[in-house]
Design a protein around this nucleic acid. Structure first.
Length: 470
RNA sequence: GCUCCCAUCGUCUAGCGGCCUAGGACGGGGCCCUCUCAAGGCUCAAACACGGGUUCGAUUCCCGUUGGGAGCGCCA
């Protein structure tokens, strides 16, 4: 079996779309699984959209996801010479012909045909005119056989195809000499030696035409695998406005690359009951025959779950590195990566599902002084708890080592003097004092990471506040 | 409108004629744990779109219906 060569051929839109990302992932996984190569080709023939920034965004997104390629990025715009040469060859061989019908004439005939209740494909007016290059403004059309199956065995959809008569002679070169998409793709895939075209199912209906193109070029089509589309809620098309569609967006929200990768690979593909796939497992286990045929909705809750799973797997130091910028943005100030931050990250990772959420929950750690949640303060910062709080402050102040264990002992000693006070009655006021709210990791650990001086200062401040109110 | 494609819990899916009392996961409910919130453990509810065939036997095969999607450009 010849070497497997797959390709990912996005058009540069300024970001990496999750649907494209999954297609890239499938191509990558398939190539790796079979010891082949992945080629990256930028479809940049649409000049306005194709900026260097847009291309960089694409490359960045792929690299972040951990998708590496073996050749490229190649740019389609650099291959116009060979596109033109291919057209010349087809013209010479009679597989293509010049057509001088104007868009206006075409539109008129199309309308008339549809009005007559018949379906429109090009009516072949210029098909046998034998127009030469001197025929004035003209396009080039592919000459399809009158009939005949344009079929293939799709690696996902199985037997597929359409009869040539359904399609009509399509334009392959514009009147300005520029190649059309289908021609460019076929010529480039041929030129690059692509053996497996793995792409979105939206291309499924285009494939017969491309098969015809391969044949007209005297070539054997590659294997095709069309992967089902990712759709939004309710099975509707993913909408840029309603759904988060860019890989960058997920990255900025604090999703981990392994989580997004795992999420994407599992939409439309499965391997038994397995849910968690490392990069290596994806490369070892992915296969096209386990890809589904129906389109799938993206489930953001599952992504959240996966993200927390990977968050929990990360070493605390690494997690602190990742969390620091999110926390800095949350607190509006620099956040150095310290041992305490790593300790905090280890505590918060089972409380937040994204880095952004972890940062929100950890705000109290990074800010100078906390803002009190009004309801929490009203409920827990009352004169009734002041004596016990004062005793706790004294006990904490005398601690020789500031550790969770020592802090717990201080709490215990205070509680032993207030027999009718339960742990919760003391912990909550302290929690409000040091975090401003009622939600945090265990109170001993919270005080530990915050440090002795900041903890005591915040308790002191609360004591003052209770006195002021009283 | 025409052509093509798809159809299992709310969602992602397992199932490739009997193993199905339809399995797993996310999400949801309950219980346990507990200083809050989580995490964790246990547990419950939840699906073969419908109608015909084929077969001793259909979730699985065939045909319709319904519902969804994609494609029908001198866009990519």
């Amino acid at each position: 079996m010849p070497e497997v060569r797959t390709r990912f051929a996005p058009s540069p839109t300024g970001f990496l779309h999750v649907g494209s990302a999954r297609t890239a992932l499938y191509n990558w996984a398939f190539a790796r699984r079979h010891g082949g190569a992945l080629l990256l080709r930028i479809e940049d023939t649409d000049r306005e959209r194709s900026t260097p920034e847009a291309e960089r965004a694409l490359v960045e997104g792929l690299e972040w996801l951990g998708i590496d390629w073996d050749e490229g990025p190649l740019r389609q715009s650099e291959f116009s010479e060979r596109h033109r040469a291919a057209v010349e060859r087809m013209l010479a061989a009679g597989h293509a012909y010049r057509c001088a019908c104007t868009p206006e004439q075409l539109e008129e005939r199309r309308r008339a045909t549809i009005a007559a209740g018949r379906k429109w494909t090009y009516d072949g007016r210029c098909r046998s005119l034998g127009l030469g290059a001197d025929c004035g403004p003209h396009v080039v059309r592919l000459r399809l056989p009158e009939t005949g199956e344009l079929g293939w065995e799709d690696l996902v959809f199985g037997k597929s195809g359409q009869d040539a008569s359904e399609i009509g002679d399509r334009i392959i070169q514009r009147s300005d000499g520029q190649p059309l998409y289908h021609l460019a793709v076929v010529v480039d895939d041929l030129e690059m030696g692509v053996t497996h075209v793995i792409r979105g199912a939206d291309h499924h209906p285009n494939t017969p035409l491309q098969i015809a193109l391969y044949r007209a070029l005297g070539a054997t089509p590659p294997a095709f695998a069309h992967v089902p589309l990712i759709v939004g809620a309710g099975g509707k098309k993913l909408s840029k406005r309603r759904d988060p569609v860019s890989v960058q967006h997920f990255r900025d929200e604090g999703y981990l690359a392994p989580a997004l990768r795992n999420w994407l690979i599992r939409i439309g593909w499965s391997h038994g009951d397995q849910e968690i796939f490392s990069s290596d497992e994806i490369c070892a286990l992915f296969d096209l025959d386990a890809v589904n045929r129906s389109s799938a909705q993206a489930d953001s809750d599952k992504l959240l779950w996966l993200n927390q799973h990977y968050l929990k797997e990360l070493p605390a130091e690494k997690l602190a590195d990742l969390l620091a910028p999110f926390l800095a943005a949350e607190a509006g100030r620099e956040v150095p990566v310290t041992r305490e931050l790593a300790r905090l990250a280890a505590l918060q990772r089972e409380r937040g599902k994204t880095l952004a959420e972890m940062a929100r929950l950890s705000r109290w750690f990074a800010v100078e002084s906390v803002d009190f949640d009004h309801k929490a303060a009203a409920k827990h910062l009352t004169p009734a708890v002041a004596p016990a709080l004062r005793a706790l402050r004294d006990a904490l102040a005398e601690l020789e080592s500031w550790s969770a264990d020592a802090i717990e002992a201080a709490f215990a000693s205070v509680l032993s003097n207030w027999r009718d006070m339960k742990m919760g009655k003391l912990a909550q006021p302290v929690r409000v004092a040091v975090t401003g709210g009622t939600v945090s990791p265990g109170i001993f650990e919270t005080l530990e990471v915050l440090g002795a001086s900041r903890s005591l200062a915040r308790i002191e401040r609360v004591l003052q506040r209770i006195d002021d109110v009283a």
